[in-house]
């Protein structure tokens, strides 16, 4: 962010695609989703995945490793929108104030 006017592309053009990943929006979050593994259908049997489907920021990772199902939030990009919390059918996601 220290670039001068002649060190940045003309007119604000973004000349490389796919660089939204450099913009970490986790700082916008007022409430943080917390995962309760015991209630989660993905962890239990690898089903559901509604939180992953609905997350608008690709900030949920559903991982399958050595026959185990792991659920992770990517807090670099989670804006705390609560959609996962609203959609979860088993209340396996709760929100906590940041």
């Amino acid at each position: 962010m220290s670039e001068k006017f002649d060190e940045i592309p003309m007119a604000g053009n973004i000349i490389e695609p796919g660089n939204a990943i450099e913009y970490k929006t986790g700082g916008w979050r007022a409430e943080r989703p917390i995962h309760i593994a015991e209630k989660c259908l993905w962890v239990k049997n690898g089903t559901c995945g509604l939180c992953w489907i609905y997350c608008p920021d690709n900030a949920i990772r559903l991982i399958e490793k050595d026959g185990k199902y792991i659920h992770e939030f990517d807090y670099d990009y989670c804006k705390g929108c609560k959609i996962c919390y609203t959609e979860c059918p088993t209340d396996a996601i709760v929100m906590e104030s940041e």
Binding site: M1, I8, A11, G12, N13, I14, I15, E16, P17
Partner: peptide, 12 residues
Amino acid sequence: PITMGPLALTDY
């Protein structure tokens, strides 16, 4: 592909 006319706030 490039993006034209994107957001630029206080920083740019």
